[in-house]
């Protein structure tokens, strides 16, 4: 589904990704781990198409197309979803409106009719139950005054409603207490699907106790330096990242 080849990217003239290769198939869950500054979030943002992330070399193929040639909204409509590390607050626009606008844009791209208000509400309420969210949240401004945990839950709710093909979760576990983490993880697990790929970018292995990945990659110095199964994450927990950094620089 996704094939990243020799990806180089820079931010503010600073090279962050330095030749990253990654291949992800439908139905797979991948964890990308690495120390701070290794390029994890850069990878997530490059995939989603954020301004200011300049790809200088390499390719990203998504369902056979050149992902990098697409505008961010085009990527989203084709099924790419980024759960933000820091979801943005937009006071003045309520959550329901954002969800409906997003869902209808994506449905229109797929050639599906818009949902009417009734169908939309039924869908949203069902998915909100999954995320243990109160209905009152629909009328609140987007992420306005949300706690860290509420913001992350809201990201997964959006994912549950938009039903992406490729979901990239950027540090979704950061700032969550254990109860919130369980809710978020249960939400993500319910979205595992043979047609969907999930990429989790995380610093800690804690999240992986709740969402079991098929593959674990270690990112260091802008490249993937090691790939394994989830036992690799446990090893990282024990030994930290330094042994890999040393290995990579040899």
């Amino acid at each position: 589904m996704l094939k990243v080849t020799n990806l180089h990217a820079r931010v503010d003239d600073k090279a962050i990704l330095t030749g990253l290769d990654l291949e992800i198939g439908a139905g797979e869950v991948h964890a990308i781990m690495g120390p701070n500054g290794s390029g994890k979030s850069t990878l997530a943002n490059v995939l989603a198409g954020r301004d200011g992330y300049e790809v200088t070399e390499g390719t990203v193929e998504y369902d056979g197309q050149d992902l990098l040639a697409l505008a961010p909204e085009e990527r989203a409509r084709r099924g790419v979803f980024l759960a933000f590390q820091y979801p943005v607050e937009i006071p003045g626009v309520n959550n329901a409106y954002l969800l409906k606008a997003a869902l209808n844009a994506i449905r229109a791209h797929r050639g599906e009719p818009e949902l009417d208000a009734f169908e939309f509400l039924a869908l949203v309420k069902e998915r909100m139950e999954l995320m243990h969210m109160d209905e009152s949240f629909l009328n609140r401004g987007v992420n306005e005054g949300f706690s860290g945990g509420e913001k992350k839950r809201n990201e997964i709710l959006q994912m549950a409603i938009l039903e992406p093909r490729l979901a990239v979760l950027d540090e979704t576990d950061s700032g969550l207490d254990i109860d919130a983490l369980k809710v978020v993880a249960a939400g993500v697990n319910s979205l595992r699907d043979p047609e969907r790929a999930i990429v989790m970018v995380t610093h800690y292995q804690r999240l992986l106790d709740y969402i079991e990945p098929d593959y674990v990659h270690v990112l260091s110095g802008g490249r993937i330096v090691k790939t394994g199964d989830r036992t690799l994450a446990l090893e990282l927990e024990d030994r930290g990242y330094d042994w890999l950094r040393e290995a990579a620089s040899v």
Binding site: E73, R75, A76, R77, G92, V93, L98, A101, A102, L162
Partner: peptide
């Protein structure tokens, strides 16, 4: 820019995203 990207990343068109953020600004 962050808010704009947030909306774009949800599949919302640039024009609608811009109008939504403008609305949010004036809604205050």
């Amino acid at each position: 820019r962050n808010a704009l990207f947030y909306l774009l990343s949800r599949g919302i068109s640039r024009k609608v995203a811009r109008d939504m953020l403008t609305f949010a600004f004036a809604e205050t």
